[in-house]
Design a protein around this nucleic acid. Structure first.
Lengths: 371, 371
DNA sequence: TTAATTGTCGTGTTCGTACACGGAAAAATT
DNA sequence: AATTTTTCCGTGTACGAACACGACAATTAA
């Protein structure tokens, strides 16, 4: 809908005063002060064309003195710059699955920046198929975008891709997980180790006794480094507590399509007198549904990420804490970093750990990632 | 520092392609389509001057059809609109005190919007003196700003102020606490009751036995409705648990300058076998320092807000949880709402509860309010 | 001495919108 | 029929920055 002011005629006009005091400094002002033309100042600011060393110095001094800040509005309007970014992320397994979220965040930032002529081209690969990763990577290289945000899911393939990006001088950011010193502009994601510590502490605090089961719901653990990190930190927490009454066990569940896993876990719970469960990723709803079905309700459960299903088990009291890493914000931030670097030419931080949010039944309804 | 492109000459120029596909629709395009001049379209869009009903209709149809979205950059650049906003908040008691934060957030948003010609005029009153509130309110009325963000600390005085604002047709938003149905554009703050529930749950979870002391550090409780709400919810939590092993007590500490309060609290702890403490506001550092001094370390403590001092006791393990309400984000959001409504003429949500964040030793370093 | 080259710079147009001014046509008034 | 008044609409300039083009002087080469 197109509305504008028609709806609120009554509003009084906005003030047109008091602005002289902090009037913006324009290129024009600098030119006047330096007694040169606008074109000359422009050349100095953007190192275009040639300028006599003396005038260049004079202009830079005045720029400094007057603290000139370019008007972004006018700048982007005039330059008509445009850029195409590509994202390379896993195909979400369902509508509400984890990987739909970073994508949404990226879309949001792109929508906000449409005025700046930004465009995005999403590429998605199959989580279980490194070949599809390579194929999509190849398509990105053909597109030759101005920036790439990728989840380096398959390390070997990602490294090869990155090499080519570097060669083509295309900047990129990592999202979710990271390869160190690969020439990335930035990394956006959680500190997996630290988040494992948080999980450990929380479960420890609310569990007077009984043993603990750590469950990885993942097809192959090879490319799931952050799950390993979380598990490691979780174990470390308990090994650092003196005289901890808990014993820890770990299980992998590769395939939840095969219902055999349910009995396997149920047996483990019974035989090891498990009183606490930590699921290392967003698949904790599986545990919720299992406990509900088997009517087990004396187990404390911690998992990750605010999927709809997870929230539902949180509200039912079958899951006690969800650790959240603001996936939408990660997508948003990834695009934002590319924008700031590529279009605005600003320098950006190399690391960007998102916060480790603790969500429980009572605060989940107030949790919003975005402003 | 002024840098621009000088630093990264090597970067290749941004692409200038593929943009035709989603080319922006301009007023010019609409004018051409409708076979009228730009001026006419402009008059229709802004109901300026008069336009024949037939052409007006035609233009609106085309606008609809082409889904015209005005270019905000060009628009604000050309209009040179400007607005002055005023904030009315308590004077922070110290550099790092709670009330310095909403102010910082507001400043931040103002800085970002400088390009739009926005200005802010902060007014601060003495938390213990309703007269000073009235005085500052009067000064705001003299300024006649285009919008006001205020913390309605003193209800009676705030109501009188708001009446005058409404009369002058000046929009305003509440921050921190709220007066219902007073004509506000929006309310930005925490749901105090809910945050009290969160505190109750957390303390309950980590406390096997022993009694609990609720402390209000506040001069007068009359104007501290949200502290009351938090306390009420906290009590409600425990009364809803069947067979809770905890008994609750409440104390007010009006003045921490008088060191007598320390003994009073210490006595209470001893005589009531207190094992948990809940401080209803940001003054929990007082408890931290007390416990440290008296070398008491078997008490679980929950308080509010990430003041530097609070964080330091959190890290020492003397405070176990801090509930945070993102005060900077509140200030930021308050200005943002005013901007969106006053300058951009957009509609905005009436309520904006900030999230209830749970902070502990392990995740505090990763907690950032802002992107 | 003239032509060609290089180093410096100014002018003019553009981006998409806002808004003032005034002109022309149509309607209403003498 | 001549005039005033009203209705309707087009033109031109501004916002602040980006960038292309070419002017002019100072050098250098012929």
């Amino acid at each position: 809908m197109y509305a504008f002011e028609r709806t609120n005629k009554a509003k009084k006009p906005i003030k047109q005063r008091a602005i002289e005091s902090n009037r913006q400094i324009r290129i024009k002002d600098i030119a006047a002060r330096a007694k040169v033309s606008i074109g000359t100042v422009d050349r100095v600011l953007h190192n275009r064309g040639e300028v006599a060393e003396s005038t260049r110095k004079k202009i830079l001094e005045i720029v400094e003195e007057l603290n000139y800040q370019p008007n972004i509005l006018a700048s982007t309007l005039a330059s008509k710059k445009s850029a195409v970014f590509a994202t390379l992320m896993p195909q979400p397994l369902s509508e509400d699955a984890y990987w739909s979220k970073p994508s949404k965040g990226a879309q949001k930032r792109i929508a906000e920046l449409r005025q700046y002529g930004l465009q995005m081209q999403p590429f998605m690969f199959n989580q279980g198929d490194s070949k599809s990763f390579e194929k999509e990577a190849q398509r990105i290289l053909e597109l030759q975008p101005d920036g790439v945000a990728l989840a380096p899911f398959f390390k070997k393939e990602a490294l090869r891709f990155i090499d080519q990006l570097n060669e083509l001088n295309i900047p990129f950011v990592f999202i979710d997980s990271e390869i160190r010193d690969a020439g990335q502009l930035s990394y956006i994601g959680q500190d997996s180790y630290q988040s494992g510590l948080v999980s450990g502490k929380l479960l420890d605090m609310i569990l007077p006794d009984g043993n603990i089961l750590v469950i990885h719901f993942a097809r192959e653990m090879d490319n799931q480094n952050h799950l390993i990190q979380r598990e490691k930190a979780f174990y470390d927490w308990f090994s650092q507590q003196t005289g901890s009454p808990h014993q820890l066990f770990t299980t992998d569940v590769a395939d939840t399509d095969d219902p055999a896993w349910e009995d396997k876990i149920t047996d483990k719970i019974r035989s090891h007198s498990i009183k606490g469960i930590f699921v290392t990723n967003s698949k904790v709803f599986n545990v919720g549904s299992l406990l509900e079905k088997k009517e087990i309700n004396d187990i404390k459960v911690i998992g990750h990420d605010l999927l709809k299903e997870n929230v539902s088990y949180l509200k039912k009291g079958l899951v006690h804490f969800l650790i959240c890493q603001r996936p939408e914000e990660q997508g948003y931030e990834a695009i934002n970093k590319l924008f700031r670097s590529v279009v605005q030419k600003r320098t950006i931080d190399e690391k960007n750990y998102t916060s480790i949010d603790i969500i429980t039944k009572e605060n989940v309804d107030y949790y919003k990632e975005f402003k």
